[in-house]
């Protein structure tokens, strides 16, 4: 049991615990904060796999930007316990069943995969470093990469169009 093991177990427990807290905490703001902790634990795992680039991008993009926007919306909506709507019983059942189905699919998919021969490259893998990742993205995976970038571009254009459209054009500010 060396320090990598200790870190691995610590991060795993942290990730699972905080992920559980995300769905069990009553206050939505706390949920978001726990989700951020989860992202940190996952970034820690990336670092253990020597994928520093992925780790930091995970933090910048998810923890630093997307979660901020989540927090934004939740803080401004001012969701309190008192304003929590009564949930439909059927909806709860549907959610539970959908979640179980997802779990089933995941277990079924992972059960038959060959994992014995693919030990994780702890501390020595080079693929997560920025140079290798860039080469890989722009050679092997260049088509999906470019397609996803076009997807983002169209999303951006869409956002601009929605933002521009004002019901009363005379009220539009310069």
């Amino acid at each position: 049991m060396n320090i990598t093991h200790v870190l691995f177990w610590f991060l795993s427990v942290l990730a699972l615990f905080s992920a559980l807290m995300v769905i069990t905490s009553r206050n939505p703001v706390h949920s978001v904060l726990w989700l951020i902790v989860t992202f940190f634990a996952i970034s820690g795992h990336y670092i253990l796999l020597n994928a520093q680039f992925l780790a930091i991008v995970n933090i910048i993009v998810y923890a630093g930007a997307i979660m901020v926007l989540f927090l934004f919306v939740i803080m401004l909506m001012n969701l309190n316990k008192s304003t929590e709507p009564k949930k439909n019983r059927w909806l709860q059942w549907a959610g539970a069943i959908a979640g179980l189905c997802l779990l089933l699919v995941l277990v079924a998919a992972l059960k038959d995969t060959e994992i014995k021969g693919q030990a994780a490259q702890v501390n020595e893998g080079e693929i997560g470093l920025i140079k290798n990742l860039g080469k890989e993205l722009f050679s092997t995976y260049v088509v999906p990469f470019e397609i996803s970038s076009i997807l983002f571009l169209s999303a951006m254009v869409g956002a601009v169009v929605i933002g521009k459209a004002s019901p009363n054009p005379s009220e539009g500010r310069a």
């Binding site: 520093q52 680039f53 930091i56 910048i60 923890a63 630093g64 930007a65 901020v68 803080m75 920025i130």
Partner: peptide, 22 residues
């Protein structure tokens, strides 16, 4: 001297928001 030095700075700076927001 990590090989994502400048990105690390960006990451930490982007987390600086939480102090203010929380």
């Amino acid at each position: 001297d990590i090989n994502i030095g400048i990105l690390f700075i960006f990451g930490v700076v982007s987390l600086g928001v939480y102090g203010i927001m929380i």
